[in-house]
C-alpha cells in the first residue's frame, strides 16, 4: 500500500478523483430525484464535440469541452421549455447532434489519436498537475455552491410549487444546477472518460438512495460510495493493471447491488 501512495501520478489521480467523485455524487442525487439522470449522459456526448473542437482549433480540449457543455446544457433547458418536448427528447437531440458534430470535427482534424481516446475512456492515472488543479478548483466550487444552496435545491426538488411560493427563485436555481452538471461532466471525463462519466454521476447516487431515510443521509452515502469506488478502483488499477475508469464504474455498481440487496433484506425480515 505504501508504494501505491508514494507515486506522484497516484497522488494526483487520487486528489482529482476524490474531488470530482464528490461533485458527481452530490449532483447525482438531485438529478435522479428530478428524474433528470440522463442529462449527464447527454452532456458527455456533447462534451465530445467540445473536445473535438479543441483538437480541431488547437486549444485546450478541456476548456473547449467546458464551454460547449455549458452552452448545450442551457440549450437543453431552453428546448425543453420552449418546444414542449416529452421527457428526455431534448437530451437525446443534443447528445446525438453533439456526438455527430464531434465525429465530423475529429475526422476533419485527423485527430483519431491517443489524446482523443484518453477523453473517451478516461486517463486518470495520466492526469497532469495543471489538470489536477483545474479539477480540484472547479469541483471544489461545484461542491461549495451545492452546499450553500443545499436546502433550496432540496426544497425545489421535493416540492417545486411550494418552493416558488416560499420566494425561492426556482428558475435561476435550475440554470445553476444545469451549469454545475455541465462542469462536473467535463471534469469527470478526465477521470472515467466521456463514455462512462454519466455512470459516476448516477450509480453512487442511486446506491445512496437505496438506504437513505433522509436527504442528508442520501448525500453522505452517495459521496461515500463515490469515494470508495474511486479509491479502490485506482488501487486495483495500480496493482492488477485494470483499466481505472471501468474498474471505478463496476465497483460502484457492485456497491449499488449490495445496498439494493440489503434494502430488500431489511424489508423481508
Amino acid at each position: 500500500m505504501e508504494a501505491f501512495f508514494s507515486y506522484g501520478f497516484v497522488q494526483r489521480a487520487l486528489l482529482a478523483g476524490i474531488f470530482v467523485a464528490i461533485a458527481c455524487a452530490l449532483l447525482g442525487v438531485f438529478l435522479i430525484l428530478r428524474r433528470d439522470a440522463m442529462i449527464g449522459h447527454g452532456l458527455a456526448h456533447v462534451a465530445f464535440a467540445g473536445v473535438a473542437l479543441g483538437l480541431f482549433l488547437n486549444v485546450i480540449p478541456l476548456v473547449a469541452a467546458l464551454i460547449v457543455a455549458v452552452l448545450a446544457a442551457l440549450g437543453i433547458m431552453k428546448l425543453k421549455e420552449k418546444a414542449g418536448l416529452y421527457g428526455d427528447t431534448a437530451i437525446a437531440i443534443f447528445s446525438s447532434v453533439g456526438f455527430a458534430s464531434g465525429l465530423l470535427l475529429v475526422t476533419f482534424a485527423h485527430s483519431f489519436n491517443v489524446d482523443l481516446f484518453g477523453y473517451l475512456f478516461g486517463e486518470i492515472l495520466a492526469i497532469e498537475t495543471t489538470e489536477v488543479l483545474l479539477s480540484i478548483g472547479l469541483a471544489g466550487v461545484v461542491v461549495l455552491i451545492v452546499i450553500l444552496n443545499y436546502h433550496k435545491f432540496m426544497y425545489m426538488t421535493f416540492d417545486r410549487d411550494s418552493a416558488k411560493v416560499s420566494g425561492i427563485r426556482v428558475d435561476r436555481l435550475d440554470v445553476l444546477l444545469t451549469i454545475l452538471t455541465a462542469i462536473t461532466v467535463v471534469l469527470g471525463m478526465k477521470i472515467v472518460g466521456l463514455l462512462l462519466v454519466a455512470a459516476l454521476m448516477v450509480i453512487p447516487a442511486a446506491a445512496g438512495l437505496q438506504l437513505a431515510s433522509s436527504f442528508k443521509q442520501a448525500i453522505l452515502l452517495s459521496s461515500f460510495v463515490a469515494l470508495i469506488s474511486v479509491f479502490f478502483g485506482l488501487l486495483m488499477a495500480f496493482y492488477f493493471d485494470f483499466p481505472a475508469s471501468g474498474t471505478i464504474v463496476i465497483l460502484s455498481f457492485l456497491i449499488f447491488g449490495l445496498f439494493f440487496a440489503f434494502k430488500r433484506e431489511k424489508r423481508l425480515f
Binding site: L33, H151, K152, M154, Y155, F158, D159, S162, A163, S166, G167, I168, L209, A212, S213, S214, F215, K216, Q217, A218
Partner: peptide, 16 residues
C-alpha cells in the same frame, strides 16, 4: 421513496 425525513420537510418551511 423520496429520501426526506419529516424534520427536513418541516425545516423547508423556514427557508423564506
Amino acid at each position: 421513496f423520496f429520501p426526506v425525513s419529516v424534520y427536513e420537510v418541516v425545516a423547508m418551511g423556514l427557508l423564506s
